[in-house]
Design a protein around this nucleic acid. Structure first.
Length: 505
RNA sequence: GGUCGGUUGCCCGAGCGGUUAGGGAUCGGUCUGCAAAACCGGGGACAGCAGUUCGAAUCUGCUACCGACCUCCA
């Protein structure tokens, strides 16, 4: 039985889907006005794991992850931070060119991390009509008001009928006393109200025509507004469009809990009269020197910089799989502190695992298993499954896989034996948990890369090493060392084994 | 200031009432022409104080420090 930590309940709950055999899952995706950084990799990988695991245990999953390409951008402009508008202006690009550019790069980065694409990836800008309709519903129910051409959520009115703040553990009184008064909020009745539809100022680049019917002072009125949807509207509109008025899982970063997810709940309850999401899941932050890595602190390192080693804090380049492994070595609800040292440790651990996987494919079965090997194999699958069932405890899964690498290495070393049945089971468990569920690409990228050429190349190296093997048998150390040293200089790693050799680049 | 969370060995990081987490580093041993790898083993820990309990890293209280959110943020 899968247990998930539901932020709404502040506890782990058994996962029971709304419709048997099916799961609807929505996750807040990126705002595409810059390259994805390490922080963006966290939810992408966390919910990729959930997506993979739900699929592995037999559910048919519809996974929706949005692309935010309107709304936040405009708000940032008020703060003097509108990178998309600035970029569009400076580089004489259409805003949509900026959006496309960073969306492409986001996809590329996610693919490198072996994050599966979601089932549906809706753009906010492609769902303006749905968002306008959603705002209209809220107006119809009387939980919104019109002010100066914009539409705002009437939080006070809403809080009379629904518990506002239940996700983040706030109540309206706290929010009243704690919300700062910001400039340009005089259109709102209260500082805690939030925009559902915002009239576009003349300098704004992205805007759409909208028409709203509303009642004011007992009078039916129509608002014609050239503008854009509020920051939280897209998730309510697109989530319910593709997953229904009620669906199973909504995920995102902890920093979105308030106000974003709280606002989403309010919008959906206001429009529909009931809750939409059953399980709210939040991943914790990645920190750097103990501080959250984020846009606002300007302390982030982009994924591309990791892949290229192109940042002062990085001692070297780190492969996408190292990043993925690093993130999976911690539980998703814990903070992870980034450091080059920690990444290097993760890299070595991952290599160890990849080597064990390669050996697992090569070792041959014996008549029986050594006791220790057998007892380990007998329990491995269950241990891994229990860890995943316990709120996706990937560190424990990895820990179990590492335990089994000892058995694999022992067999490869000829110090233990494994039976046909145990070997099959061990290979299956690795395939299922390491490859399919954790999404680790252990087989190495070079194999799939070039195909035929690759094979010829592999055979050439094998040939060289076989010559060396002959030299060793003849105790011709100069030739033997010359081959090994030359290959080492070229970047190969040569390891002698009982049967012969292993090599890698 | 309010709300919530954290503090685990040299480093990263699980554990949430009784069992060796795991990885990296390090030290010793086995293997080896040498090297690498692998294997075996060692050392090293629960921020502090008090309490509950047969038993606490795990529960309670207090103290100290750190962080997140309260404003765009994954």
């Amino acid at each position: 039985m899968l247990y998930l930590y539901n932020t709404l309940a502040r506890t782990k709950q058994p996962f029971r889907p709304l419709h048997e055999g099916h799961v609807g899952m929505y996750v807040c995706g990126p705002t595409v006005y810059g390259d994805a950084h390490l922080g963006h990799a966290r939810p992408a990988i966390t919910f990729d794991i959930l997506f993979r695991y739900l699929t592995a245990i037999g559910y048919k999953v519809r996974y929706v992850r949005n692309i935010t390409d309107v709304g936040h951008l405009e708000h940032d402009a008020d703060e003097g931070e509108d990178k998309i508008a600035k970029k569009a202006r400076l580089e004489q690009l259409e805003p949509m060119e900026v959006v496309q550019f960073f969306t492409n790069r986001y996809h590329h980065d996610m693919e490198a991390l072996n994050v599966l694409p979601p089932s549906i990836e809706p753009h906010a800008s492609g769902h303006i009509i749905e968002q306008i309709a959603f705002v209209q519903k809220i107006l119809d129910k009387g939980y919104a008001y019109v002010s100066n051409g914009s539409v705002y959520m009437d939080v006070e009115r809403y809080a009379q009928d629904f518990p506002y703040g239940k996700l983040s553990g706030r109540n309206l009184e706290d929010i009243v006393t704690d919300t700062r008064e910001l400039d340009g909020q005089d259109e709102k009745r209260h500082s805690y109200d939030f925009a559902l539809w915002k009239k576009a100022a003349p300098e704004h680049i992205m805007h759409w025509p909208a028409e709203f019917r509303y009642t004011e002072d007992g009078e039916q009125k129509v608002l014609k507004s050239e503008g854009f949807p509020g920051w939280h509207m897209e998730c309510s509109a697109m989530g319910t469009k593709y997953l229904g008025e009620e669906f199973d899982i909504h995920g995102g970063g902890m920093d979105l809990m308030f106000p974003h997810h709280e606002a989403e709940i309010a919008q959906s309850c206001a429009a529909l009269g009931h809750d939409t999401v059953h399980y709210w899941l939040h991943n914790n932050m990645i920190t750097i020197a103990g501080k959250k890595m984020g846009k606002s602190y300007n302390n982030f390192i982009t994924l591309r910089q990791f892949f290229a080693g192109d940042h002062p804090l990085l001692t070297k380049a780190f492969s996408p799989m190292t990043i993925r492994f690093f993130i999976l070595m911690a539980h998703y609800r814990s903070t992870v502190d980034f450091s080059s040292e920690a990444l290097e440790a993760a890299e070595k651990g991952f290599q160890r695992m990849a080597e064990a996987y390669a050996r697992l494919q090569k070792i041959s079965a014996a008549a029986t298993s050594t006791d220790e090997v057998h007892s380990l194999v007998a329990e491995l699958r269950q241990h891994c499954a229990e860890a995943m069932d316990d709120d996706l405890n990937t560190p424990i899964v990895i820990s179990n896989l590492f335990d089994s690498t000892k058995a694999i290495n022992s067999v490869a070393d000829g110090k233990a034996t494994i039976s046909e049945a145990d070997l099959k089971e061990l290979r299956e468990v690795w395939q299922q948990f390491a490859i399919d569920i954790l999404g680790l690409q252990l087989a190495g990228t070079q194999q799939s890369a070039v195909g035929g050429q690759q094979e010829a190349y592999n055979k050439a190296i094998d040939l060289l090493l076989n010559i060396r093997l002959d030299a060793k048998r003849n105790k011709d150390w100069p030739t033997s060392d010359r081959i090994r040293n030359s290959l080492t200089e070229l970047g190969f790693k040569i390891k002698d084994t009982k049967e012969g050799f292993e090599w890698s680049l």
